[in-house]
Structures are given as structure tokens and as C-alpha cells.
Simulated assay, not measured.
Amino acid sequence: MKRREFIAHFVATAAISTCPAYAQKGVLPVVGYLGFDAAEKSPELLVAFREGLRTLGFEENQNVAIEYRFAEGKYDRFPELAASLVQSSVQVIVAATGTNGVLATTAATKTIPIVFAIAMDPVSVGVVSSLNRPGGNATGVSMYTPQLVAKRLELLAELTPAGGTISMLINPTNPNANVISSDAEAAAKSLG
């Protein structure tokens, strides 16, 4: 199973297990799904998400309903889309969006359970209060990757033993930009 499929499967499992309606007979649980790209751009995530639901005995439009919202790659759409899911009275929100979408979702509701997949440390960006006791209404999986910046620079240094300049492109609208750039600078200094 690929990493993205595993994460989608984990998120589906966590989403339904946190859904209060799951325990009630005769009530169709409604899962809100907030995605970063258009549905056509990440079909493998949706397939894995639905498969995760199926392994728990949930079939879309049979015993679970899913409200989909997609930002189509536009960070600024997340607040509006998260608010739309909250207004739709979903029982749980799956934020398959990265940091910006998770932040917008946690800002939109403090009561609806949120299950996320995030590439940053969810504590440092304020999504949860701690890793072992998240608190609040959000939980999920973190692929905390900034520590990999040092390893990537180390590999580049090995590939170019004569030295040189290494440039790094960072999306300035990404809330992780400052953390990534400071980690890269610290790693570069340690490597000389």
C-alpha cells in the first residue's frame, strides 16, 4: 500500500470512529470531505478514502453520506469551503488538505470532530495542544517533514563535493514556509 493510500485509509477509519452518528441505529452519518485539488486531480486519494470506509462496512450512499468540497488548488477557498461543511451539519470533517485547509477547518468549528493529514508538526502550527493528548476536536496523522530538509541538503552536499550554491523554492503563502526555510538555513550552516 502506498503512503498516500495508507494515510487516506487511516483518515477514513478515524473519521468514522469519531462520528457520533455511527453508534445510533437508523441514522445515516454524514462525513464532510475537504480536499485540496479538484476531485479529478487526486482520484487515488478518494479511492483509498472510500476503500477505508468500505473496510469498516460503510458504502457511500448506502449507509454513509459524504459531502465533498474541493479547493481546486486555491488556498484562499479553504475558509469558505470549511464553513460550508459546518453549515451542512456534517458529523465529522476529513481535512485532506495540508496545513492551510486544516487551519481553516479548525477555525471554522470547535465542536465537529476533524480528522486531518498534515505535513507539519500539528502542535507548532496550533492544530492540537500535544501529540499524545491532542485536546479539542482535531486529530490526525502528521508526516512531519522539516527534519528531512537537513538530510536532503546532506545528500546534495555529497553529490557536489566541490561545493556551490543550493537554491530552494518555497511557496510564500504556505504557512510552513518560515519553518522550512529556517530548518534549511540551520542545516546548511551545520554542513558548512
Rank of each mutant, 00 (worst) to 15 (best):
R3T: 14
F6G: 14
F6E: 13
T13I: 07
A14N: 13
C19N: 15
Q24N: 09
Q24D: 09
K25S: 14
G26H: 03
G26P: 02
G26T: 03
V31S: 01
Y33L: 14
G35T: 08
F36T: 00
A39V: 10
L45Y: 12
L53C: 01
R54F: 07
F58S: 02
E59G: 09
V64H: 01
A65G: 10
Y68D: 02
R69L: 09
R69V: 11
G73K: 10
K74C: 03
F78P: 04
F78V: 08
L81N: 06
L81E: 05
L81A: 10
A82G: 08
A82V: 06
A83N: 15
L85P: 04
V86T: 10
S88C: 04
V90M: 05
V92E: 06
V94A: 15
V102H: 04
V102Y: 04
T105K: 04
A108F: 07
K110T: 14
I112Q: 02
I114C: 02
V115F: 02
A117L: 06
A117T: 09
I118C: 09
M120S: 14
M120H: 05
P122I: 03
V123A: 05
V125G: 01
S129E: 15
P134N: 03
P134S: 03
G135Y: 08
V141F: 13
M143V: 13
T145A: 15
Q147H: 13
Q147M: 09
Q147W: 11
L148A: 11
A150D: 08
L153M: 10
L153T: 00
L153P: 00
L155R: 13
L159C: 11
A162K: 14
G164M: 09
S167T: 09
I170A: 08
N171L: 10
T173D: 12
N174H: 13
I180S: 10
A184S: 13
K189A: 15
G192H: 11
G192W: 09
